[in-house]
Write a protein that binds this DNA or RNA. Structure first.
Length: 595
RNA sequence: CUCUCCGUAGCUCAGCUGGCAGAGCAGCUGACUCUUAAUCAGCGGGUCGAAGGUUCGAGUCCUUCCGGGGAGACCA
């Protein structure tokens, strides 16, 4: 293999750049160099993307955790990960290796990697053909360097995957970070990059999954059944929102992506299950903001023979458990605040909390008085709003943002809660609560309406609101009413926003930070016509790079050009570059681009 | 949808009242056997988001558009 060293004398690398370049015009110099390295690796007989399993027996975090306690451990290890940094000093080098659990330093020494005469595995392959971003596996033993860092002394290594694009290189020391990869657009569009270079992003999403696991196990221990219900629905219902519309070809009918799964879960309660829940991806056709994504996740739970009082206790218990499971404490830092989920939470009625924060008692007001009050409080109204909506607006504007610690707001106006049961003692109200936390709704729950006649009236009132111009009013679901007519036990229902809860539990400022792939406008890619399209016009293949150099990316752009000037310019370049192709005839060019 | 800020090298960012596109890291070449933001010497790398306009001259000024952030509106 000594021959190989002679094959790659220093300084001759750049010869190959042109050849590879013809594949695409868009490669940066660094990408070309990496593609070159790829070719050289292949030429050396090294598969840059080997198929077989690479057996590992340890992770970075296990070593960092256990080695200090027992330095006899980890004397024969195998580990794999991505190269995140290199410090090469002649015949020795240090490498930062990142695996799913963390980063660990590797020590490469030439004479250990290459025990014999042939030093190419170190000098050529490791030093020159490997890059930051490549994925490798190494075998060796753990030791501590002079500087006191736990390090793997590498005896052999293997390339597992060659990286062709340069990675953002984030450097850090003593909690200071240099050149952090921060551009939100790139982070969200290329989440994989974000995950590679920003470890806190990886842990945020792990926390999100732990949250879901914690909630699921809480519900399973209680004996509730996790179920799945349709996402494609002929009628959307269960919430006040505009849906996404789609079409089923063979049935030739409109279907909607669900905005909630409430009505299906309640059908299952009618069917005889006494507790059902679903982690439900819901879709609402609305704007986006740091609190809204068009698709989001809700957990909905329905439990028979219970009421909303009981459900409040369950919510407190469940969220408190989640906080402890994730943080080991009920106190969670969110922005500037410390939020304490310890039970019991404060409970206010809606009218009570409005009285508390505005000093106004609205309990006896009719629609006109409410509208006047709203205007006085500088709450915006519009004519489509009924009494319930007005109260909700007043609450939303004057109270909600001030509720930082988890707080239950109970007893909502009947007009805005068409699926909730009439309050057992308060006229005009329903048995509904929301938990508010950090100024935002965390969950929504009620004693479910199981009176089929009342439910029909409520739907009909919604239809009236729809006629007044409320685009989010509910539609009437005859099959759901039919189910209720067979009889549904008294039931408590809950909907809890998993994304919103994740934001709080991970101290994330935006919903985009707890969704792997938040909705974004499509990337606008530059239109580029293929070589074949240019050739099809009549140009010889040799002209295509010249056309591109001249700034013509598409055939369309070419057709806009003045044929005489074009032929002139191109022939000028031909002369300048001394190209060995026939000159263009302006009349022919005119024919081609006007064809 | 409105207001506002931003878009310059692979990443982070400078670039003044308009005058030859810059730095650090990353990359390439070379030196270096326990470094750690490794170091030292040298070199390459750009459609300044796009299109118009003003100007002798535009990264810089004006208009429009695209994309993104933030704040609101709508909305949970």
């Amino acid at each position: 293999m000594i021959l190989c060293i002679r094959c790659y004398p220093s300084g001759k690398k750049s010869l190959n750049l042109q050849k590879i370049n013809t594949m695409s015009q868009e490669l940066s110099e660094q990408e070309q160099i990496r593609r070159n390295s790829l070719q050289e690796l292949t030429a050396l007989g090294i598969d840059p993307y080997p198929a077989e399993t690479y057996e590992t027996n340890v992770t970075a975090s296990e070593i960092l955790e256990d080695y200090p306690n027992n330095e006899k451990l980890f004397q024969d290890i195998s580990i794999a990960g991505r190269i995140m940094g290199r410090r090469i000093m002649g015949a020795a080098a240090f490498v930062e290796l990142q695996d799913p659990g963390g980063k660990i330093q590797l020590y490469f020494k030439r004479d250990d990697i290459c025990p014999g005469e042939d030093k190419s595995a170190y000098n050529i392959v490791f030093k020159r053909l490997l890059d930051i971003g490549d994925i490798i596996g190494v075998k060796g033993y753990v030791f501590t360097t002079k500087m006191g860092e736990i390090t793997i002394h590498v005896k052999e290594y293997k390339l597992l995957s060659k990286s062709l694009k340069p990675l953002p290189v984030v450097k850090e020391k003593d909690d200071k970070v240099w050149d952090a990869f921060t551009d939100p657009e790139q982070r969200y569009r290329q989440r994989y990059l974000d995950l590679i270079v920003n470890p806190e992003v990886r842990s945020t999403f792990i926390k999100r999954t732990e949250l879901v696991n914690s909630m699921r196990s809480f519900l399973n221990v209680k004996g509730y059944l996790e179920v799945e219900t349709p996402i494609l629905q002929p009628l959307y219902g269960g919430a006040a929102a505009r849906p996404f519309k789609t079409h089923h070809n063979s049935l030739d009918m409109t279907l909607y992506l669900r905005i909630a799964n409430e009505l299906y879960l309640k059908r299952l309660i009618v069917g005889g299950y006494d507790g059902v829940y679903e982690f439900s991806k819901d879709f609402r056709n609305e704007g986006m903001s740091r609190f809204h994504n068009p698709e989001f996740t809700q957990m909905e739970l329905y439990v028979a023979y219970k009421d909303y009082e009981w459900m409040m206790d369950l919510v407190e218990e469940m969220i408190e458990k989640i906080a402890i499971d994730l943080h080991g404490t009920t106190k969670v830092k969110v922005g500037e605040n410390i939020i304490d989920f310890k039970r019991p939470w404060k409970r206010y009625t809606m009218l009570g909390v409005i009285r508390e924060y505005t000093g106004i008692d609205i309990s006896e007001m009719d629609e006109a008085e409410l509208r006047a009050t709203a205007n006085k409080l500088e709450v915006e109204t519009d004519p489509s709003m009924g009494k319930g909506k007005l109260i909700d607006e007043i609450f939303g504007e004057t109270c909600e943002a001030k509720l930082i610690q988890p707080t239950f707001i109970t007893d909502y106006p009947v007009e805005m809660s068409p699926l909730a049961k009439k309050h057992r003692s308060e006229e005009g109200l329903v048995e509904r609560f929301e938990a508010i936390c950090n100024g935002k709704e965390l969950c929504n729950a009620f004693s479910e309406l199981n009176d089929p006649l009342d439910q029909r009236r409520r739907f009909e009132e919604q239809l009236e609101l729809g006629k007044r111009g409320d685009t989010e009013s509910m539609v009437l679901d005859e099959d759901f009413l039919r189910a209720l007519e067979y009889g549904m036990p008294p039931t408590a229902g809950l909907g809890i926003g998993v994304d919103r809860l994740s934001m709080i539990m991970t101290d994330s400022n935006s919903i985009q930070d707890v969704l792997f792939f938040p909705q974004m406008r499509p990337e606008k890619k530059q239109e580029v016509s293929s070589d074949e399209e240019f050739i099809a016009l009549g140009f010889q293949p040799e002209w295509v790079p010249i056309l591109r150099e001249k700034g013509f990316n598409t055939v369309e752009e070419l057709k806009q050009a003045n044929p005489n000037k074009l032929a002139n310019d191109l022939n000028g370049l031909r002369k300048k570059k001394k190209l060995d192709i026939p000159a263009l005839n302006p009349a022919k060019v005119k024919e081609w681009i006007e064809a």
